[in-house]
């Protein structure tokens, strides 16, 4: 009887240890974040509020994305932005300006420029479904409590030499596996951007942040808030959506 009890205790301890160990492993944490954040495709309606020099500028937009490779963004307001459309395929971004009735093509370092005057770059906005575990290796730091929420703290280093954000520091919600706060660093170690999640919602099989802010640390007194009004995961998007014809339509 005693032996059996001991055996059971040992088994329980082992299982518990294994479970905690598994969860502690950076790769596993990244994997769980990725399964929340990445999607096959999605349709999103959102507001973008830019806070700069005591001013608030609100823009309304909607987007269709297919994984991390293709996306299409359309601006609905304000009046001067209405009809501006952004198409990303691969590493190339094409922007249609209704005022000029012309398409401009951006690539390379231009993708890191501010999108429509916000703190987000074109890259930030169009690569929201990026898998972290593919590009980064993680290292655990001491756990911290962020706004009353227990968090794993991870530092990520890029596996590739060329990466916009070469290093990242993430505060990951221990229950929901969402990066609540993130500091993004350039290769030289300079803090470039800070993002924070304000609200997380539970969808069918995942948690997803529906309100977040981003601060471009290279700009003074500015931050941009994104509020997702509607999001549909894994819907059918016709191939035609990601063509230049849709830009001009």
């Amino acid at each position: 009887m005693k032996r059996l009890l001991l055996f059971i205790i040992i088994v329980i301890l082992l299982v518990f240890q294994m479970a905690t160990e598994e969860a502690n492993e950076p790769f596993e944490i990244l994997n769980r974040i990725d399964s929340n954040m990445t999607f096959k495709n999605a349709y999103v309606e959102m507001d973008m509020v830019i806070n700069i020099k005591k001013r608030k500028i609100k823009k309304v937009m909607r987007s269709w994305s297919e994984g991390n490779s293709r996306s299409f963004i359309e601006f609905l307001s304000p009046a001067r932005d209405k009809g501006t459309k952004i198409l990303k395929t691969g590493k190339i971004i094409k922007i249609y300006y209704p005022s000029a009735e012309r398409v401009m093509r951006l690539s390379g370092h231009m993708l890191r420029q501010s999108m429509m005057g916000s703190d987000m770059s074109y890259e930030d906005m169009t690569e929201r479904s990026k898998e972290l575990k593919e590009d980064y290796t993680g290292k655990m730091q001491m756990d911290e409590i962020l706004d009353g929420q227990k968090c794993y703290v991870l530092t990520l280093t890029s596996k590739k030499k060329k990466q916009t954000y070469f290093k990242r520091k993430m505060w990951v919600d221990k229950e929901k596996y969402i990066g609540l706060k993130e500091e993004l660093y350039s290769k030289s170690g300079k803090l470039v951007k800070v993002s924070k999640v304000i609200e997380i919602k539970l969808f069918k099989n995942r948690y997803y942040p529906v309100e977040m802010t981003m601060e471009d640390k290279l700009r003074k007194n500015s931050s941009t808030r994104i509020v997702i009004k509607k999001i549909d995961f894994n819907i059918d998007i016709p191939d035609e959506m990601f063509t230049e014809r849709m830009l001009l339509k």
Partner: peptide
């Protein structure tokens, strides 16, 4: 030549 910039209200505007 296409000129693109953000205006004083942070909207992006372009003219050829």
């Amino acid at each position: 030549l296409l000129l693109v910039t953000t205006d004083i209200n942070y909207s992006t505007y372009a003219l050829p």
